[in-house]
Design a protein around this nucleic acid. Structure first.
Lengths: 190, 190
DNA sequence: AATTTTGTTGACATTTTTGTTAAACAATTA
DNA sequence: TAATTGTTTAACAAAAATGTCAACAAAATT
């Protein structure tokens, strides 16, 4: 892996996996075991590294989901696939979305780009159809999508807090999260 | 309101409402329209202000829920109350939990305190009972709790991202969120 | 009113973080 | 081999953020 790739990978690890949302360039350089100047050499500035990481995060997120959302398979299978893929992503990068939100909120660059997802709208139509066919309960497709994302993501994103409040150890929490794939499917379809 | 209270309130507004997770002490002072030195006067250091805000956030969160969780009312009503109260909190402070997570992940101080919630465990027992009585589908109480929190919180927390990806305007998104209270209740109990 | 206490301010010092540069080094090519 | 190009490094400069202090103002107490 090139130094440039390495730096990006480690930055993602720090932000998306570890959730160190206010990590410095030094932190990133340390994690990548490179001289901090290389961050400026390859990305010019801290801000541009952030932008690059941000952009790639959105891209990745979308392209991961695109594969599933455009797949030509029965609805229920598609949802299963979606859960499978997205959960895997979540466990790898629990705080990716949190990073995106924080950047969008914090200022500037993220707001300008228009990045609506074609694939998601495609999936929304699938949901509408499934709703019409009685495969799922009738409700606005967006809500079905919200429900899916919510049920998957929140327990992962809020893990440190919930572990504290509910006094659950690491092992048990992992177990709980693993149980959720099946549980969500059940909740959504029955 | 005393200056000390004002500073805390504005800090919370910046962190929890606006989601500016890397706001500086100057940002906070500006928002409160006070001299930055006053932050040091009242809180000694940036870190202590953060700790105070953090602690109060956990306290508030817990005491809000305690009222509901200990209430002596039928299960379904209790859940309705819970949704009502928590949604209201969410709309006021969408990023409070995100702040907590970021702080827990980033440093240190948050980890030491043991803050498990008695009230939540009480509610978990209610859920178990309701499950036994067939009021809700049988499943581990924690999952029921996860589901509730998830369905409420995620669309609020991820709002900026979902608005972008789904291309939804502010007004429509507000509408969607308002629809969810009823929708969640339906999903959970039917 | 005089005095003590508390609150507030701006200037400055310190620390932390980021950005720049020149020089060393390595790899490639002519 | 020499020259060119690309990569890495350490030292330094600049900027940003935090912390400290003495002076001043307001409020409370005597």
């Amino acid at each position: 892996m090139s130094t440039e790739e390495l730096i990006k990978a480690k930055a993602k690890e720090i932000f998306f996996t570890k959730g160190h949302l206010h990590a410095t360039t030094q932190d990133i350089a340390d994690a990548a075991e490179v001289n901090r100047s290389l961050i400026n050499y390859y990305f010019r500035s801290r801000d541009q590294l952030f932008q690059t990481v941000y952009r790639e995060a959105v891209e990745d997120l979308k392209s991961q989901l695109d594969v599933v959302f455009y797949a030509d398979i029965p609805f229920k299978e598609k949802v299963e696939q979606f859960i499978e893929v997205y959960m895997k992503e979540l466990l790898r990068y629990p705080y990716r979305e949190s990073f995106l939100i924080t950047e969008i909120c914090s200022n500037n660059f993220a707001l300008k780009e228009k990045k609506k997802s074609e694939a998601m709208h495609h999936f929304l139509k699938d949901i509408e159809q499934a709703s019409a066919q009685g495969i799922i309960k009738p409700c606005k497709p967006v809500h079905f999508l919200f429900n899916l994302f919510s049920l998957m993501a929140l327990p992962v994103i809020m893990r440190p807090l919930y572990q504290k409040l509910l006094d659950i150890n690491d092992l048990d929490y992992n177990q709980l999260i693993n149980e959720r794939k099946a549980l969500i499917l059940k909740l959504i379809f029955d």
